[in-house]
Design a protein around this nucleic acid. Structure first.
Length: 190
DNA sequence: CTCTCGATTAGCT
DNA sequence: GCTAATCGAGAGA
């Protein structure tokens, strides 16, 4: 069943990132419905996190959505060509989000096979830029409410045992000084 | 207005 | 392992 709005309000971003593992991310586009189980996440958040776009409560047109109450989509362009999908979490006025770095496709196999062309199936949605490319997520989804019917999360009763979860530092944030080593990346290997 | 560089990926060596 | 691709956010003038 679809996750309700309250679920997203946990003020601890790492706990939220861990919680999203095993949940289904679903996207409905004009060409069909597709989705998969979330297998890799990263937490960003708190005004103190130097790796977070909202560091030091930096509020701009782009980061404003991170300050919304949890349960919205934050999609932005990185390296001029890759869209990154994040789930805004936590209470209002705290910049907090969870980056979805990988998904195991379960729904819309044919649609995604078409989108990903000749790319090997194991690479369909393993990597933040690949997740959006596979599911058809673009900046048009930025700020959308995740309790709506365009993009949402589902709990399918899947239990992820702690022993199948690996905690590591986050990727690609070498600039974040003392926050570089914080183990806020979660990888689920079923 | 201008300049720098990024929460990355694919393709080639 | 190395790096080109590609563009807009954010900062400074």
């Amino acid at each position: 069943m679809k996750l309700s709005a309250e679920i997203y309000r946990d003020p601890n971003p790492a706990r939220m990132a861990r919680y999203f593992l095993g949940k289904a991310l679903m996207v409905r586009t004009p060409d069909g419905l597709c989705g998969g189980l979330i297998t890799e996440t990263e937490a960003y958040g708190g005004a103190e996190d130097k790796a977070c776009h909202g560091y030091n409560n930096r509020r701009t047109a782009r980061t404003e959505i991170m300050f919304a109450p949890g349960g919205r989509a934050y999609v932005y362009l990185c390296y001029g060509m890759h869209e990154m999908f994040n789930i805004v979490t936590g209470p209002a006025n705290v910049p907090q989000a969870v980056l979805i770095r990988a998904v195991a496709i379960t729904d819309g196999i044919e649609l995604i096979a078409r989108r990903r062309g000749k790319i090997a199936r194991k690479h369909w949605a393993s990597g933040p830029g690949r997740v959006t490319a596979a599911l058809g997520i673009t900046r048009a989804h930025n700020t959308l409410d995740l309790t709506g019917d365009t993009i949402w999360l589902e709990d399918r009763g899947i239990v992820v045992p702690p022993r199948q979860i690996q905690k590591t530092p986050r990727i690609g944030i070498d600039f974040a000084e003392e926050w570089i080593d914080k183990p806020w990346r979660f990888v689920w290997t079923p």
